[in-house]
Computed example of a mutant assay.
Amino acid sequence: MDRFEAMAMLVTVTEEGSLSAAARRLHVPLATLSRKVSDLEKLLGARLLIRTTRKLTLTDVGAAYVAAARRILEDVEHAEREAAGEYTTPRGELTLTAPVMFGRLHVLPLVAQFLATWPAINVRLSFTDRNVDIVEDHVDLAVRISQLPDSTMIATQVGEMRTVTCASPALLAEHGSPERPDDLRRLPCVTVDAPILSPSWRYRVPGGSAVIEVPVASRLSLSSTEAVAEAAIQGVGVARLLHYQAARGLANGALQTVLEDYEPGLQPVHLVHVSRGQMPLKMRCFLDFAVPRLREALKTAGGHQSP
């Protein structure tokens, strides 16, 4: 049996949480994957997984083995990259992820320029508003628009982003412009339909740090921020968005900001990657290329001028 292949399959099974999900990700038959894992258990003389109809759990021996297997596979990957010249010549595939609308507006044009500059580097670019696990999803670089938790990740800040409350001039003329966050209770609102988001909108007391939470009744709930911005332009209701999401409407007058004195603090924008010792040149090249360009773009898109 190919021990490295079986180790890699086992690691994928633990990352996906099930044999069937791992088989789909690896594009192998479920029976083949199951047999490989069983063969590995026989070789080791130890049970690695406890399988039930509802979930899959690592045994204590299995957890220790998977941790060791990850280290071995990472060392092998590092050696292969070094042998392929990724640490001496900028080449290979770079995997990036970014929020959907931010990625389309700011990352995709940048990647197109980068590819024209570095013909030996290919890019796999994924847009999602979910914070993917960089390690488990094998992502080289990710855009994050939020305060970052403490971690071993390396983060390069490229800007800051306002959170704005905005509405169409026609809606404000009809209902009146809110002077305090609590005034939103009487106005129709457009919201993003996402399970992780609070049903309340947060604001900050002017000149202080106290937080005001205002429950809003959604007149229209949508699955994307781009659609929310468009609905606000159409006069459906008041929207609360990151500045870049509303930038087009704000620039052409289709949207107006309200409650500016109550806006929460600026959200940092980072490029995040895993620290794994020596950085491949393809990643170094992209960071050197992307960071100054994103910083310049975010002076406008972020809704403020950097000092």
Rank of each mutant, 00 (worst) to 15 (best):
K36N: 10
A64G: 06
L40Q: 01
A67K: 10
A21I: 03
I50T: 15
L19W: 02
L33D: 00
S18F: 09
R35A: 13
T53A: 13
A23V: 05
L33A: 02
T52K: 03
K36E: 12
L56T: 10
D75W: 01
L33G: 00
E74V: 01
E15T: 03
A69E: 08
V61T: 12
R70F: 05
P29L: 04
T52E: 02
A69M: 05
A63N: 12
I72H: 08
A68Y: 03
L58V: 01
L26S: 05
L19Y: 14
A31S: 15
L26H: 00
R24F: 04
T52A: 09
S38F: 13
L73D: 05
E16W: 08
A67G: 10
Y65T: 06
L33V: 05
R25Y: 04
R25A: 08
R70L: 05
S34V: 08
R54Y: 09
A31P: 02
T57R: 12
L49R: 07
K55L: 10
R71Y: 03
S18R: 09
V61M: 09
V66W: 01
V37R: 01
T32I: 11
T57V: 13
L56G: 05
G17M: 07
K55H: 12
R47S: 11
I50E: 15
L19S: 06
R24Q: 15
R25L: 08
K36V: 05
T59D: 09
R47Y: 06
A23S: 13
A31Y: 15
R35N: 09
L40H: 00
L40F: 08
L58R: 01
T57N: 05
S20N: 14
A31M: 15
K55D: 12
V61P: 02
T53G: 11
P29H: 11
R25I: 07
L56V: 13
L49D: 08
G17I: 04
V37H: 03
G45P: 08
G17F: 06
L33I: 04
T32K: 14
R71Q: 12
K36S: 11
G45S: 11
V37S: 06
A64D: 06
T32L: 15
E74G: 04
R70T: 04
I50P: 01
E15P: 03
D39Q: 14
H27I: 12
A64F: 02
L56R: 01
R24K: 13
V61S: 07
D39N: 15
V28P: 04
E16M: 14
A22K: 02
Y65E: 04
I50R: 15
